[in-house]
Write a protein that binds this DNA or RNA. Structure first.
Length: 362
DNA sequence: CCAAAGCTCCTTTGAGGCGC
DNA sequence: GCGCCTCAAAGGAGCTTTGG
């Protein structure tokens, strides 16, 4: 169905292009279309594979169930079974039903067979690609569950939510029985952590998680944003106060740095440790004159001591800018202006009334 | 028995609000 | 801008619980 939709869209695009071309040139006539070719490519996505033992550090957390399908042969393909996703979901359903023992034996224990059958995976490719459209389909077929996919980095012993598709990688699915245990190592703080299922951040208490949930935008595509409206009589009135920003700036300097991320490991003060340092390696700036729109040619520097170089260059620019600003212009002041100044009773910037008697000013 | 999670309790750190 | 306050995050000691 995706292919059909794509073809219909493509035909529409071709029509528009043909029409556009015919309108542009004066006497074009379309006689016939000689050829339309469709190129297809095999999409290589992360795939769920056959049995892989749980990595040691992950196994130590005792937070996952890794169903054992070792030696199982799929009668349809005559190759090792690739049904790890089915068994991971089956283990969840069995656990929901109160079964806690030997869930990893779901393929072999007879009493667990029904739970494998609960899992609806019709039309889902095995091994299963990690792809939002496929997992959307699985969730539609199994309306009682929603699935989040996590990746495990054995070297760092850290879990990470999988959001983007991973291409051409063979994966193995297991069921995360206990999220809390999995995220315990997020910090060195030795208390239970509370996971947000929407964005996979961990929180220090139930209270802070609940507060976060009111605002969590989630990580999925088209994640909703919470909008806080002002309350009548409380915060529904705002007044502009930043009068300094109203003063005309004759010119602005627009500058940008690029930096290398230099790894380090040194004491920073207290119990903090500095792990990385941003070291500027280049910068570029230009001077933009507001009134005339003039731009002084962008200056680009790449090399040693970029920050010091920047300060020196800006000092020189300021000298040049002050040179321009030092040119005095004659003030144009009409009789009307003088009259308005004399009669003014409020500040022209903030509109506030003068609290001085204007008659006293001579 | 083991390793990791997690509890109680205490501490430091940094962000941010408030009043002056 | 400063001092003071509150709050949450996070570090950590010393212990128990948990699940294999």
């Amino acid at each position: 169905e995706d292919i059909e939709e794509h073809i219909i869209k493509t035909i529409g695009k071709i029509d528009v292009q043909i029409e556009g071309t015919l309108k542009k040139g004066s006497r074009y006539i379309l006689k016939r279309i000689l050829e339309i070719s469709i190129e297809t490519y095999t999409l290589r996505r992360a795939l769920g594979g056959s049995y892989i033992p749980t990595p040691k550090k992950l196994a130590n957390t005792k937070s996952t169930i890794n169903p054992d399908n070792q030696g199982l042969i799929n009668p349809e393909t005559n190759r090792p079974s690739e049904r790890c996703l089915q068994s991971a979901l089956g283990a969840y359903f069995a656990h929901q039903d109160g079964h806690t023992d030997h869930l990893e034996q779901i393929f072999r224990a007879k009493k667990y067979k029904p739970y494998l059958d609960i899992v609806k995976l019709d039309g889902i490719p095995m091994p299963t690609p990690i792809c939002s459209c496929i997992f959307d389909k699985i969730e539609k077929m199994n309306p009682d569950i929603s699935i989040s996919v996590w990746g495990w980095n054995e070297e760092l012993a850290t879990p990470k939510a999988v959001i983007a598709n991973k291409y051409g990688q063979k994966n193995h699915f297991l069921w995360i029985k206990n999220h809390s245990k999995l995220i315990y190592g997020d910090t060195a703080h030795k208390e239970k952590k509370y996971l947000c299922n929407g964005c996979f951040q961990s929180w220090t208490s139930e209270k802070t998680l609940e507060r976060h949930l009111e605002w969590c935008p989630g990580l999925h595509e088209n994640a909703p944003q919470r909008v806080a409206m002002s309350v009548k009589g409380v915060n529904d009135f705002e007044r502009f106060k930043n009068y300094g920003r109203m003063i005309n700036a004759p010119c602005v300097i627009i500058a940008d740095f690029e930096a290398d991320n230099k790894k380090c490991d040194e004491a920073y003060g207290g119990s903090m440790q500095k792990l990385a340092e941003q070291k500027a390696n280049s910068f570029c700036y230009l001077v933009h004159w507001i009134d005339t729109g003039d731009v002084w040619v962008p200056f680009l520097y790449r090399g040693e001591n970029a920050t010091q170089e920047f300060v020196q260059r800006i000092d020189q620019e300021l000298v040049k800018i002050n040179g321009v600003l030092a040119i005095k212009h004659e003030r144009i002041e009409t009789e009307e202006d003088k009259k308005r100044f004399a009669e003014a009773i409020s500040c022209w910037i903030c509109k506030g009334k003068f609290d001085i008697d204007t008659n006293e000013i001579e």
